[in-house]
Write a protein that binds this DNA or RNA. Structure first.
Length: 219
DNA sequence: CCAGACGTTGTT
DNA sequence: GTCTGG
DNA sequence: CCAGACGTTGTT
DNA sequence: GTCTGG
């Protein structure tokens, strides 16, 4: 079951963005994703729900081409990498999704699997965001990765960092920067809370945007 | 000092 | 912007 | 992530 | 193989 905009509003204490929220089934890098961020300071929490380009564009980038390379950030090195360290200090965010795909290489091509939480509720990926101002103004984000849990491990040695709700506030607070505390949040999500299923290859084509991407296929 | 890089995943 | 290499 | 292109000159 | 576009 898809998490509704009003559920998101309640869960993350944000108002629903102005243009109506459209459900998405196949978000590719460079397209917009749902982001929760906190403006201002910890005393005046001002959370926002925005749509940012997936693929970070640091402020110093000459053009948007770097965005393709910065769709993920390794949690292990995030505080050192020139592309990520300033955002790690003050521009952390949550990237929302009901689930994510991983591809398995098979004889019959790339087989997508769809991963969700057991309870199907929305996932909050640990992310970073940036602001780029040139010919245009671009808000962008990246998703932090860590080692795979036992569910993902057979397909892939990495997975996105998923944050528990009790950790959201600390992650989002731009005034909070205790490297050790933040780094402790960057760990694999419990496999016990997750499940996966085979879905059809519709999702392999970026232009396919329908709920058919989630259609289950038999083993 | 200036110039150039700034990244991850997965595969070999 | 900031760091590294030369 | 996957799919698809991977090129130039010159003409419309 | 590697880059670009989505």
């Amino acid at each position: 079951m898809r998490t509704s905009p009003s559920d998101i509003s309640t869960l993350f204490d944000v108002s629903i963005p102005d243009p109506s929220v459209v459900p998405r089934y196949n978000i590719a890098p460079t397209q917009n994703v749902s982001v929760i961020l906190q403006e201002g300071n910890s005393l005046e929490s001002n959370r926002q729900w925005r749509f940012f380009r997936w693929g970070l564009v640091p402020s110093w980038a000459k053009d948007l081409s770097i965005s393709h390379k910065l769709i993920n950030a390794r949690g292990e090195t995030i505080s050192e990498k020139p592309s990520f360290r300033s955002a790690f200090k003050k521009r952390r965010c949550l990237v929302l999704a009901d689930g994510f795909y991983e591809w398995e290489k098979t004889d019959s091509g790339k087989q997508p699997h769809y991963f969700t939480q057991h309870n199907e509720s929305v996932m909050a990926f640990a992310g970073l965001w940036e602001y780029w101002e040139n010919e245009s103004t671009v808000f962008s984000c990246t998703i932090i990765t860590t080692t795979a849990n036992s569910l993902l491990d057979p397909m892939h040695d990495r997975m996105p960092v998923i944050l528990d709700s009790e950790d959201h506030q600390q992650w989002l607070d731009p005034d909070f920067y205790e490297k050790e505390s933040l780094q402790q949040l960057i760990k694999p999500y419990s496999a016990d809370k997750m499940t996966s299923r085979l879905v059809n290859k519709t999702v392999n084509h970026v232009k396919n945007e329908t709920p058919d991407c989630l259609a289950i296929i038999e083993h």
